[in-house]
């Protein structure tokens, strides 16, 4: 047991660094993912992750496998894609999802071509799928730094983001300036995607952002609860995924994302909110009587049943 769970981290410094980095990312990226899901932008994150690749590749071409160069290149490219997709669809009158799909395919192909031009298969694999060995001190600093920036910024923008997600029309009518918050939010997403590149790779960078967020929907009924659950699930997936990567000799990105995917499947099955089992139990409860349910909201919509409110009293 000890050998299985703790020895790898105790014995190998690079694995400890990767774990520390992934835990930092779990805390910052997963709550961002919750907002992406709520804004129906789940795929946008993926597009951004691919969109950073040409920037990362440019950094790699110019400076080799240097974290600052690739990070800055990725940040710039990611922001360009995030803003460009919206501007492109507005300018051409097309649909935004179509522009996004076109952009990310081009970005991915360009990135792969650029890396292949100078680098070999090893660098390409590392960029695409991540490697725990790639998490050096600089990468760890980038991941921790991203989390350090993201968490206060997210706390700062929490109320406007929730308002903007829930009721954009109302947000606009009260002058909540949704555009500025949206930009801040997109910048945070790009920052986290870039930070995740080293450990998880381009193709998997959003895995730690989106999968825990999607899974967390089944564990909470408020945005805060869901964000906390997402961070927890992401942390669990990070630790378990790195162990899997070590023991099964897998690239770390796929290992972590697969673990997060397993947690998502478990949440969808077992989660108390809209989980498959919870729904089935509620339906069974509805068939047998009001007591059989799980206290689900649909089955008990009458506050008049509360003690202390005599029927017929006008509500005042």
């Amino acid at each position: 047991m000890h050998d299985l769970l703790f020895a790898p981290f105790a014995d190998f410094g690079f694995l400890r660094r990767a774990l520390a980095g992934c835990l930092a990312l779990s805390v910052s990226a997963a709550p961002l993912g919750v907002f992406l899901v709520l804004r129906r932008m789940s795929l946008t994150a993926d597009v951004m992750a691919h969109g950073v690749l040409p920037g990362v590749a440019a950094g790699f071409l110019l400076f080799g496998l240097s974290v600052p160069a690739m990070g800055i290149g990725g940040l710039l490219a990611g922001l360009a894609v995030a803003l460009g997709a919206g501007a492109l669809s507005r300018a051409t009158g097309g649909r935004e999802d179509a522009s996004l799909a076109a952009l990310y395919l081009v970005a991915l192909a360009a990135g792969v071509a650029m890396v292949s031009w100078r680098g070999g298969a090893v660098e390409l694999t590392q960029l695409l799928f991540g490697s725990v060995l790639g998490v050096d001190d600089q990468a760890l600093l980038l991941m921790a730094g991203a989390a350090t920036v993201t968490l206060p910024a997210l706390a700062f923008a929490w109320r406007p983001l929730v308002l903007e997600c829930f009721d954009p029309g109302f947000a606009a009518s009260v002058g909540a300036r949704g555009g500025a918050w949206h930009l801040l939010f997109l910048a945070l997403v790009v920052l986290n995607v870039v930070a995740a590149l080293q450990a998880l790779g381009t193709l998997m960078a959003v895995g730690l952002m989106m999968l825990p967020a999607i899974a967390a929907r089944h564990w909470g009924r408020s945005v805060g609860a869901i964000a906390a659950a997402a961070a927890g699930i992401a942390a669990l997936a990070s630790a378990a995924g790195l162990l899997l990567s070590y023991h099964a000799d897998l690239p770390s990105g796929p290992a972590v994302v697969l673990t997060a995917g397993a947690l998502w499947a478990a949440s969808a099955l077992l989660g108390p909110v809209d989980g498959v089992l919870a729904r089935r139990r509620r339906r069974a409860g509805r068939d047998t009587g009001p007591e059989g349910g799980d206290g689900g909201w649909e089955t008990d919509p009458t506050p008049g049943a509360r003690p202390g409110v005599p029927p017929g009293r006008p509500s005042r």
Binding site: V162, C165, F166, G169, F170, S173, R221, S222, I226
Partner: peptide
């Protein structure tokens, strides 16, 4: 104060009734 058409709201959004009402304090 503007009340948009109800159909534009995501009814599955994880937010409690009181929190929705308190958004009205935004100004």
């Amino acid at each position: 104060a503007l009340l948009p058409q109800a159909a534009t709201l995501d009814r599955g959004f994880p937010i409690a009734c009181l929190d929705v009402v308190e958004l009205g304090h935004w100004s």
